[in-house]
Amino acid sequence: MTRKALEHSLTCINFDMIINHPLLGPRDSEEFVYLGSADLINRPNWESETAIEDFHEYQYIRENVAGDNVELWYHEQGDQSWLVVTRSTLTHEIKSVELASDYAKNNGRSR
């Protein structure tokens, strides 16, 4: 088999996704439960005048990104932490992993 053909075969084989847990190291994605976009961290203000529309947008409307998606994974069969994973929805390649608490703090949340 030529090198090019081998490389092509390797990208066609469906390898399981490995999530590099910041505390526990590389873990099989099967240990996790997928929730969805990390936008879900930013709950709207329920006291706002536009709360109904804001919560509709928050709960039901999706960016549905074709490309790098920032998303929430829950380590159910591990340490039960929430992670924010940046993953390509076109290739399944995982670009970065961080604790959801770190992500929230870096984005202006107090905790």
Binding site: N14, F15, V65, E71, T89, H92
Partner: peptide, 15 residues
């Protein structure tokens, strides 16, 4: 497969 994707292929755990 339970996660957002536009790739027309899935992963082995679901198989």
């Amino acid at each position: 497969d339970s996660y957002n994707t536009y790739a027309q292929r899935g992963n082995l755990p679901v198989v």
